[in-house]
Design a binder for these strands. Structure first.
Lengths: 151, 151
DNA sequence: TAACATTGTGGGTAGAAGTGGGTAACAAAC
DNA sequence: GTTTGTTACCCACTTCTACCCACAATGTTA
C-alpha cells in the first residue's frame, strides 16, 4: 500500500451541514495513509481557500521548516505566526467529516455549498463562486509549464 | 507516541475572569508532555505579547540561546535580563487555567478579552486589538518565505 | 430486478470544555 | 493578635462537541 501515499485528485461538491461539519470525499479518506490517524491539518491557503494537509505531510513540510527559522528577525516571526495561527489539527468523525474553525469558514467565505479539490499532496476547500472566478492559466502559460513539469 | 513534541497551532478566544485567571485551550494542555508537570514558563514576548513555554522548552532555550548571548554585547545582556527577569513558572489549576502576573498583564495590555495562538513550540497571549494590528507580511514576503520553508 | 453495500446528510445525547464563584489556607500589614 | 488580601482548591452551571444511530440516495453484485 505504500505505492502512492496521499495523492489527491478530482473535484467534489459538498454541503456544510447545520453544525458546520464538512464531508471529506471517500476517495480522499482512503488515500490517507493509515498512520495518519485520520487527521488533517487545516489552515489558510492562497487565494481565499482553505487547505488541508494530512498530518504527516504537514509535519514534514511545515513544522520542520518553521522550527529552523530563527525568531530573531521580525519578518520571520510574522511569517511563522501567520502560518501556525490559523492551522488546526482536525480528526475525521465516524462518517468521515471534519469541523472547520469559524475563522477559516469566514476567510474562505464558506456558507453552505463548498467545492473540494485534490491537489497532489493536499486538499483545497473553496467557495464554489470563488473557484469559478479565479483566473485560469493562459493556454500559453499552461503549455509552458507543462513542458517543465513533465506530466 | 512519536508524534511531535509540543507542537502548538491554532487561535483561540478566551476571557480573563474577575480573578485574573486565564484558560489554556485543552488542545494545548494535551500537547504538553506528561513530564512537564502541567507547567509553563510565562514571560515577556516580542511585539507586546506574553509567551508561554512548556518548561522543557524553556530550559532548552535558556541553555542554547541565552547563555551565549549573555556574554557578548550590552544590548544582548539587557535583552536576556528583561526576558528572564519577568519569567515565572505557573501551574495549571484543576480546570486548566493559569494565573498571569500583574506585570505581564500590564505589559501585554490584557484586560478581559484575550487571544491565544499556538506558534510551533510556544504559546502567545495577545490583546485582540494588538494581534489584529501587527503588520502582516506582504504577499511577496510570504511567498518568498513559503518557497524556502514549505515548498 | 432484488438484495446488498457504500456514501452523503441529519439529528440526539453523554461527556468534555469554558466560565464563574465560595471558601479555606497562607502571608503580609496593621 | 487581628485584619486584609491573595492564592489554590473545590464545586456548580452553561455551552459545545465528539460519538452514536438513522436514513435516503446512489452504486454494485448476484
Amino acid at each position: 500500500m505504500t505505492i502512492t501515499e496521499n495523492s489527491f485528485t478530482g473535484e467534489f461538491s459538498y454541503t456544510l451541514d447545520s453544525k458546520g461539519r464538512l464531508n471529506i470525499p471517500s476517495k480522499f479518506r482512503s488515500a490517507l495513509s493509515p498512520d495518519n490517524d485520520s487527521n488533517f491539518v487545516i489552515t489558510k491557503g492562497m487565494d481565499r481557500c482553505v487547505v488541508a494537509y494530512p498530518v504527516v505531510e504537514w509535519q514534514r513540510r511545515v513544522e520542520a521548516g518553521l522550527r529552523e527559522l530563527s525568531a530573531t528577525s521580525q519578518r520571520n516571526r510574522l511569517f511563522v505566526r501567520s502560518v501556525t495561527r490559523y492551522a488546526t489539527t482536525v480528526r475525521l468523525d465516524g462518517q468521515g467529516r471534519i469541523q472547520l474553525t469559524p475563522y477559516l469558514k469566514d476567510y474562505a467565505r464558506l456558507d453552505r455549498d463548498v467545492r473540494i479539490i485534490g491537489v497532489v499532496n493536499k486538499i483545497e476547500i473553496w467557495n464554489p463562486d470563488d473557484l469559478e472566478n479565479i483566473d485560469e492559466l493562459s493556454p500559453e502559460d499552461f503549455e509552458d509549464l507543462s513542458d517543465k513539469v513533465i506530466l
